[in-house]
Simulated assay, not measured.
Amino acid sequence: MMMKSRTVPLQSLHPLKWDLGLPDNFEKLLIPKYPNYFQFVKALNGVTCLRLVQWQEEFAVSALQRSNESKEMGNKYEQFKKGQTTLAFPMRFPRGYGAQKKVRAWMEEFQKLPYISPYEDSRQIDPNSELMEKRVVGVLHELLSLTIHKKTKRNYLRSLREQLILPHKEGYQQGKLVNPHPLARLRDKFYHVMRTGLVYRNKGANMIPEDILLNDVEDETGPHESEGECETGDDCYVETSEIEEV
């Protein structure tokens, strides 16, 4: 129900079956019992997928919405349903981290952004906006709430990014930083010198390979993106306790 096409490849579900509490052969034992909910279809590339047959509105309520609805919140949740307020994610910071004023100020503004249910169509939201960031947090929060131990490996979600409309922008591309910090450039040059063992002394920069010299033009214009899959410290994606396990 969170997928934009209401369809998910079976091969993407298999790595998640342990975390979701599904039996090994769920596609043979479980799915056929609910023909009114699911059906098997073939994608254009020949991959077998599971498709939602009928939308069930009662299931399109996120864990965050349910937890707020069940709490004694006076009329706050009613205000949220009327669009008059928003929902905040429960958060706990490591000791000392949450005490930083800038962090708290940013989080307070982030929490005030409208809550976008992971079951709502979000294709019209600006992918570069803070609203989309909050929507992504909501999707990951909901996915984790569906798992047995409230965590999973981020690698298991890679094949679902497009269907879940999760961002592909990441920090690394083809093993290199997409937008390197000036200090990172200097560290790379220092590493090259230490690795090769060159001593430049009187000959100066003439011995330094041209490809590692400072490039003022590139520094001013920024690095150029190249085609291919981005890998960020793929660590953009959460676990909750640490995104190593989303």
Rank of each mutant, 00 (worst) to 15 (best):
2 M>R: 02
2 M>C: 05
5 S>W: 06
6 R>H: 10
6 R>P: 04
6 R>L: 13
7 T>R: 09
9 P>I: 01
13 L>C: 06
23 P>C: 12
26 F>C: 02
27 E>I: 05
33 K>L: 10
37 Y>E: 09
37 Y>W: 09
39 Q>L: 02
41 V>D: 12
44 L>Q: 12
44 L>T: 10
46 G>T: 05
46 G>Y: 05
47 V>P: 05
52 L>F: 03
52 L>K: 08
54 Q>D: 13
58 E>A: 15
58 E>H: 15
58 E>T: 15
60 A>N: 09
60 A>L: 14
62 S>L: 12
62 S>M: 09
63 A>P: 02
64 L>W: 11
66 R>G: 02
68 N>V: 02
69 E>S: 13
70 S>W: 09
72 E>T: 07
76 K>L: 14
76 K>F: 12
77 Y>K: 03
78 E>C: 06
79 Q>P: 04
84 Q>L: 11
88 A>C: 06
90 P>S: 01
90 P>G: 01
90 P>I: 00
90 P>R: 00
91 M>A: 03
96 G>T: 04
96 G>V: 03
98 G>K: 00
98 G>S: 00
98 G>M: 01
98 G>I: 00
105 A>H: 07
105 A>F: 11
107 M>Y: 08
108 E>Q: 14
109 E>Q: 15
110 F>Y: 00
120 E>H: 06
121 D>V: 07
124 Q>S: 15
124 Q>G: 14
128 N>F: 15
129 S>N: 02
131 L>P: 08
137 V>R: 11
140 L>K: 05
140 L>G: 10
143 L>K: 03
146 L>E: 08
146 L>D: 06
149 H>W: 11
149 H>M: 09
150 K>R: 11
151 K>S: 14
155 N>C: 09
156 Y>S: 03
157 L>W: 04
157 L>G: 03
160 L>A: 02
161 R>L: 03
163 Q>G: 13
168 H>E: 15
169 K>S: 13
172 Y>R: 08
176 K>F: 05
176 K>W: 04
177 L>P: 08
179 N>F: 14
181 H>M: 12
183 L>G: 02
183 L>F: 03
184 A>R: 00
189 K>W: 10
189 K>D: 06
193 V>L: 13
194 M>V: 11
194 M>Y: 06
195 R>A: 14
196 T>C: 01
199 V>W: 05
200 Y>M: 15
202 N>Q: 07
204 G>L: 00
205 A>C: 03
206 N>S: 15
211 D>T: 11
212 I>F: 05
212 I>G: 05
212 I>K: 08
213 L>M: 13
214 L>P: 13
215 N>Y: 00
215 N>G: 02
217 V>S: 12
220 E>P: 03
220 E>I: 07
222 G>I: 00
222 G>L: 00
223 P>C: 09
224 H>I: 11
226 S>I: 13
232 T>V: 13
232 T>D: 14
232 T>Y: 13
232 T>W: 14
236 C>H: 07
238 V>P: 03
240 T>F: 15
242 E>T: 14
242 E>W: 12
245 E>N: 08
